[in-house]
Design a protein around this nucleic acid. Structure first.
Length: 282
DNA sequence: ATGTAACCCATCGAAGATGG
DNA sequence: CCATCTTCGATGGGTTACAT
């Protein structure tokens, strides 16, 4: 049993406040100094203290890729929660291919073309775009679209189909959920590893992440989309912001030297609060 | 006029190492 | 897992050019 340590009110915590959702990340031993290594080229790093030069691994391991993916998902969730509230100026689009499309670059080109057309007719719109492989490895796109002048966004189906001629198009209102970020983030990692057939390779690794190319971007945003800015504050100040609301989710990770080691290097507590009252503004 | 594609470049996300 | 830093390649969008 891990004893639940109470965080001191004076302890510093990093807080993301994205509309009605508040996330607090509290690191027990906060990073003190500056990292010793500096990137000096594509693969090269130099230790500033010793002058030692090293080169990075040629290829990232599947574990590294999964970590990166999770990190991107976290950021994506926050961006969505900061920019989308369920207002009538917001819509959710899905763009698919009629055939199989496994060319990541081509998908980006196709979206670029779609966006240049869309922007012409709806110049006040901004987007968050997520590229996702389906179980068979064929890509499709999810787009959260938003009118910045806060007028209702209505796009005739006929027009949409003209702008995206590669396959199916869907446009919907945002669903009635508390956490849009969590709703729209890919959930590959939960997939079971029990594979059946042809798509073997990706499934053997237990995830569709394997379909992405090496330097993929899970999401991208147009410039008008706000980026979440964390604020470092005391834990007491955080409690003041959330009032009496208890965290709806909380998790502490302990970092050990190596697996099974008894010595704890650090611990990180993640908490999420959902504040009522500043929820949806229709 | 009206809609689309082609350039170019500032900006932004991904990479990747270590210490805690 | 988070923090921190730098480099590099991708890309968003303003502008121009080219259609219809």
């Amino acid at each position: 049993m891990e004893e639940k340590k109470q965080i001191e009110n004076e302890h510093l915590t990093k807080v993301y406040h994205t509309n009605h959702i508040v996330e607090a990340i509290t690191v027990e031993k906060r990073c003190t100094g500056i990292a010793h290594y500096r990137k000096v080229s594509r693969r090269g790093y130099v230790n500033l203290e010793t002058g030692e030069y090293i080169e990075s691994k040629a290829r990232a391991s599947p574990i590294d890729i999964e970590k990166r993916f999770k990190k991107s998902c976290h950021e994506l969730r926050r961006i969505i929660n900061l920019n989308f509230t369920g207002h009538c100026s917001e819509k959710f689009l899905t763009l698919t291919y009629s055939g199989t499309m496994r060319d990541y670059k081509q998908v980006n080109l196709d979206f670029k073309r779609f966006w240049s057309r869309f922007r012409y007719s709806y110049p006040s719109c901004e987007y968050i775009r997520i590229i996702e492989p389906q179980a068979n490895g064929s890509y499709h796109l999810h787009v959260l679209m938003k009118r910045m002048d806060r007028q209702g966004l209505f796009v005739p189906m006929k027009k949409l189909k003209q702008m995206w001629e590669r396959g199916g198009v869907w446009i919907e209102n945002l669903p009635f959920v508390d956490n849009f970020g969590a709703y729209f983030c890919p959930k590959f990692l939960k997939e079971s590893t029990t594979s059946t057939d042809t798509v073997s390779k990706a499934h053997e690794k237990g995830t569709r992440i394997a379909f992405y190319p090496e330097h993929f971007r899970l999401y991208s945003c147009s410039r008008g989309i706000q980026k979440p800015v964390p604020v470092t504050m005391t834990y007491g100040k955080l409690k003041q912001i959330v009032g009496g609301t208890p965290p709806c989710y909380s998790h502490t990770t302990t970092i050990r030297d190596e697996q099974g080691s008894r010595e704890i290097l650090n611990s990180i507590t993640y908490e999420q609060y959902i504040l009522k009252g500043e929820k949806r503004h229709e």
